[in-house]
């Protein structure tokens, strides 16, 4: 009996194409929540994923922020890690060898403080074997604009993506910040600049105060909120972004279960990234993947693509037919 179900489940087509990266299933890891893979390999088979997106990399190593770096809030986690990472060279020499043969495509999340830094990173990664794509973290402060993030204004994001696209041979996913006026404008401008896909949302800027000590709980005062607390906001933004662009949209934000992942897919996401949930259960990726397969099977859906953004037409019809 169990065997029959397993065979049937395998027949569901979960594959999708994210801007030139063919992925076997829609479950990815979110940057900064899966280390460089080696930390998670004792718990989960790294070949499980549609893609592994590794901790953000800069040209030079970065120390990160002083502690306290994290604080738990209701159904959420605020972090201000400060983009601590080993730098490009150590990543390629020490971390990539395990990852590139792991059985899942590797997408490298990159960030810089100037457009030139982003471009140089993208160009160098283009010459390295075993990398399927690049995810641009545009929530990094732009040194030339006095620390204003690249991802806050559509025109800044456009310039950055355009320049990186010119330097990179690899497919580019732009990771959008939710801390903007209109997510549709941001998504459209990076699409126009040549981004092959968008992923969203990055963390929402947030703050927590210790009222006994009358001090901020994070050394950095402000951090980024993740976890189930932000999921409804993320679903709304994925819905809006998917309505505004034709490139693939990857949904991120507080996914804890397969039901959460399906919600993002119905809203218009071709794939999802699991973030904070990895901290709680390092096997969560496999559980979400199995849940998605079972869901599709039990609803007699042959292909995942049949339900991507499937409510769009329905809502139009519903509204048209209503007397409101």
């Amino acid at each position: 009996m169990g065997k029959t179900i397993e065979t049937d489940v395998k027949m569901v087509d979960l594959s999708t194409n994210i801007g030139g990266v063919v992925i076997k299933n829609p479950v990815m890891t979110a940057s900064g929540t899966f280390g460089y893979g080696e930390e998670m390999s004792p718990y989960i088979d790294l070949s499980t994923f549609g893609a592994i997106i590794v901790k953000g990399i800069s040209l030079k190593p970065r120390k990160g922020n002083p502690a306290p770096r994290i604080v738990e809030t209701p159904s959420g986690l605020i972090n201000a890690i400060g983009l601590q990472n080993v730098g490009l060279d150590a990543f390629v020499d020490e971390k990539l060898p395990l990852l590139k043969d792991c059985g899942s495509p590797v997408i490298v999340n990159i960030f810089g403080e100037t457009i030139d830094e982003y471009c140089l990173l993208a160009e160098k990664l283009g010459h390295v074997d075993g990398i399927a794509g690049i995810e641009l973290n545009i929530s990094c402060p732009n040194v030339k604009k006095g620390g204003m993030e690249f991802g806050r204004q559509p025109e800044d994001a456009y310039r950055l993506v355009r320049a990186v696209k010119h330097s990179a041979k690899l497919p580019i996913i732009t990771k959008l910040s939710p801390n903007v006026g209109d997510i549709r404008e941001m998504a459209s401008s990076v699409e126009e600049a040549g981004s092959d896909a968008v992923s969203l949302i990055n963390t929402i800027t947030a703050m927590s105060i210790d009222i006994e000590k009358r001090r901020p709980r994070l050394f950095n005062v402000i951090g980024g909120l993740s976890g189930p607390a932000i999921r409804p906001i993320a679903v709304r933004m994925v819905w809006e972004a998917a309505g505004a662009v034709d490139i693939p949209v990857i949904g991120i934000g507080g996914i804890m279960t397969y039901e959460d992942a399906i919600e993002f897919i119905i809203a218009g996401a071709c794939a999802v990234q699991i973030g904070t949930a990895n901290f709680i259960d390092p096997t969560i990726g496999l559980k979400v993947l199995k849940g998605i397969k079972t869901y599709l099977k039990s609803h007699s859906i042959q292909r995942l693509s049949d339900i991507i953004g499937c409510i769009r037409g329905q809502i139009y019809t519903l509204h048209k037919n209503s007397n409101l």
């Binding site: 899966f34 280390g35 718990y43 770096r69 994290i70 972090n79 890690i81 709680i280 390092p282």
Partner: peptide
């Protein structure tokens, strides 16, 4: 003793200098 996000090395929340 440190506040930990994951305990398994991925979140980088528990660091000391």
């Amino acid at each position: 003793d440190s506040v930990m996000g994951c305990g398994i090395g991925t979140c980088l929340g528990c660091v000391v200098k």
